[in-house]
Simulated assay, not measured.
Amino acid sequence: MIIVRPIQQSDLKALHRIAIESGHGFTSLPVNEKLLKQRINHAEESFNKAVTQAGKEGYLFVMEDSKTGEVVGTSGIEAAVGLDDAFYHYHLGKVVHSSRELNIYNTVETLSLCNDYTGASEICTLFLSDSHRKDNNGRFLSRFRFLFIAEHKARFSETIIAEMRGVSDEQGRSPFWQWLEEHFFSMDFPTADYLTGIGKKVFIAELMPKYPIYVNLLSKGAQAVIDKVHPQTVPALRLLEAEGFARRGYVDIFDAGPTVESHVNSIKTVNESRRCQVIIGAVQSTDNYIICNSKVTNFRATQTALSLRETAKQVVITQKVADALLVKEGDWVRLVAN
């Protein structure tokens, strides 16, 4: 059985392996054992903390194959970004240059550095090993987070965002960053990306151009990748768009990948999820659901067939599933059709 649970100290080796597998552009998982350990510590503190409003908490989960005990993926939620370190984006805007006398009217796109998403909750750090990219595991690893948010809304902001990985090659070279590097930074993309991942963001404020950048002054290669996603990220973007996430003109300052957002109550999984009481027994249905318990520290989620009794707000699950979810008969769970 595939389950999702909060990360713990014993997962450090697996998280380090995932950080290596994820490659360039995966800023939230730097290949640095000390920082990964700090990330785990922060997650454990967050899961154990009594919370009444979104703050500096960071929730990191792992996907585990219960047959082997192997950790095969990870997924996270930041409760409120930008409260400690500035959270930067470029916003795509327009400037009009016109002269009625000369009958000239030109519209020019601009990129303006901003911190507009400060305080928003961010879904992040999604990675699944190749061996388990099947059986809807990728969808499950993304969507369960919305069940967690729906069950514990007080812990999160009303605005939920996701930064999508932008275009870069196998060596981690970003066409967008190459232009910035040439004119402002003298630092390659993997290095800048790594420094951001380990929390050293001061250089952004020190070196990033403060005034709007005219897009038509960028190289053709840089212009071509603005608001575009890495080929491997296309399925994740489509899934989020199906959930109701949309682009609002914000892009990453390093690779120009898009940021998508949604109000928490507009997310499809949040709206369609329901709370039910557990009945343990034989399951007649083959309908597949994502289901989680109502806990925080001992949170568990899985995908499974179950029998739903909608009128009575009850759900029938097997003893095996109940054990995996750490629930007993009469406990409340949250679920959504997969």
Rank of each mutant, 00 (worst) to 15 (best):
I104D: 12
I123A: 04
E101V: 10
D135A: 12
V108M: 10
I160K: 03
E122I: 05
E109Q: 11
R143E: 13
N115W: 08
E122H: 09
L102F: 15
R139Q: 14
T125P: 04
N137K: 03
T107Y: 15
E151S: 15
R143S: 10
N136H: 15
T159I: 12
L141F: 05
R155A: 02
H152Y: 05
T125I: 04
F146I: 06
V108F: 06
L147T: 00
G119K: 08
L102Y: 15
R133D: 15
S121G: 06
S157Q: 03
S121R: 02
I123M: 02
E101N: 12
T107R: 15
D130A: 07
L113P: 00
R100N: 13
N103Y: 11
R145I: 00
N137V: 10
S157P: 00
L141D: 01
A154T: 09
L126I: 15
V108G: 00
D116Q: 14
G138F: 05
S131K: 14
F144N: 02
S121I: 01
S142Q: 01
F144A: 00
E101W: 12
E109F: 02
H132F: 07
F146E: 03
R100A: 12
S129G: 15
T107K: 15
G138K: 06
E109Y: 02
V108P: 02
T125L: 07
S157C: 05
A150H: 03
L126P: 04
K153E: 14
V108I: 11
N115M: 10
I123Y: 02
R145M: 02
Y105P: 00
E158L: 09
A162W: 00
H152I: 05
R139N: 13
T159H: 11
F148N: 03
K153M: 09
F140M: 07
I123K: 00
S112Y: 05
R100H: 13
K153I: 00
E151V: 06
G138S: 14
E109I: 01
F146Q: 03
A162L: 03
K134H: 11
I123D: 01
K134N: 10
I160A: 04
N106Y: 13
S121L: 06
I123H: 03
N115P: 04
E158A: 10
F127W: 11
D116E: 15
S99D: 11
R133M: 13
N103E: 14
D135M: 12
S112F: 06
L113D: 01
S98H: 08
N137Y: 06
